[in-house]
Write a protein that binds this DNA or RNA. Structure first.
Lengths: 123, 123, 123, 123
DNA sequence: GTGGTCTAGACCACA
DNA sequence: GTGGTCTAGACCACA
């Protein structure tokens, strides 16, 4: 068993930014908020954001230009790949959890379909 | 933003036990491990398990008999209700996340179906 | 504050026997159960019952005859006095508690009357 | 027989606090003492008070605000209901005890009335 | 400062 | 052996 699964904050923020990129809120070439601004928005230490941007750059999802700021990669293929990968992880995880609850694969599809095809999306 | 969503350990363990009940690993009337044994298994303090069992009892998923132990409820209807509720939460959460990635409802169904209908379940 | 108000068991048993005497279950001159029998009935050590009978004798509510056993006093006046005293204590205590809850004296009378005059005694 | 009916300390303290709420010493919205302060006042471990406040919250008699403290519910109806319930329990219990002493219902009313209508409240 | 969780360890009643 | 309570004391997030 693994308790205390507590992801480091910089990784949590990376995830948020990846979400924004993948969903198109941030597009290829867009400027990311400055380290200081994002630190304020998330109420964390600027170092945390700094680390976050560094790691995103290492994954080639953003690039920095000295004196100008940090920008979303213009490699749209990379973004698409990321989107696929993130979707895959979510899906994998979801299916695994549902199986743990004792649902068979076909049941899972049915539950999802039913949930999505309801006329009014509650919430 | 919400970082550090660290669920208390006793709740995480409640979740594990609910999974076992809902999936049928633990059936109505079955004895749960003793507080001390489960504490060893999960490497936590017995008080933490105690708290966990108490909360599960409060939710009418288990009942205790002084001097004998803690047992899974025999109210099968309650177990079924729990299973439905847990499935609903997982599904809700999954859909929400996928939407954040920018997927449309019908795409989500397709992704799940494709994933499930692949001939060989990888891993 | 006083927690752990835990009366000694011999006193609790004295109380039970006084109840039996005062209510007429045990009458003046009746033989009390033997120390051994009562110890069994209450699942306590015979010494505890011994102590209990001793104290009751000191209060002149019972008397012992060597070789014969322990008997309820034949002083009916003493029994009546005991009954009055016990009733007084209960009543005093009850009123005090009700006042702590914020009820005025006249309200207390009303509540008791209403409760007693209900057609069917529930329970 | 039931000896040693020793209520857990946290329940005894719950009872004290309920008394304070019901009698109006603590009113809707009032802040309760902090866990640590009450622990000192009652000379018990803070965990015991913690448990107490938690149970009171579960009964919707208090609510907590993270970082601020614990407060009496503002649902005055709930307080009134509690008062009625506590009075009922006391009364029920009192009548039962008096019956055990051998008093008839009408006698009980008379004893209470006499006790209350005495000109000077002794003690 | 405030409540919430957790550990380590003791002692209890019940069976 | 089983759960239930309690102490002593630590550390945490939130304000």
């Amino acid at each position: 068993m693994e308790f205390d699964s507590h992801l480091p904050i910089y990784m949590q923020i990376m995830h948020v930014i990846k979400n924004r990129i993948v969903s198109g809120q941030l597009r290829g070439g867009d400027k990311l908020p400055s380290v200081r601004d994002l630190a304020k928005e998330f109420k964390v230490n600027p170092n945390t954001i700094q680390r976050c941007y560094q790691e995103l750059e290492r994954e080639n999802l953003v690039f920095t230009q000295r004196g100008l700021g940090t920008f979303v990669t213009e490699d749209l293929e990379a973004i698409k790949t990321l989107k696929t990968k993130m979707a895959h992880e979510l899906t994998q995880n979801f299916i695994e959890q549902m199986k743990k609850l004792g649902f068979a694969p076909q049941e899972i599809i049915k539950i999802i379909s039913d949930r999505i095809n309801r006329r009014h999306d509650d919430e």
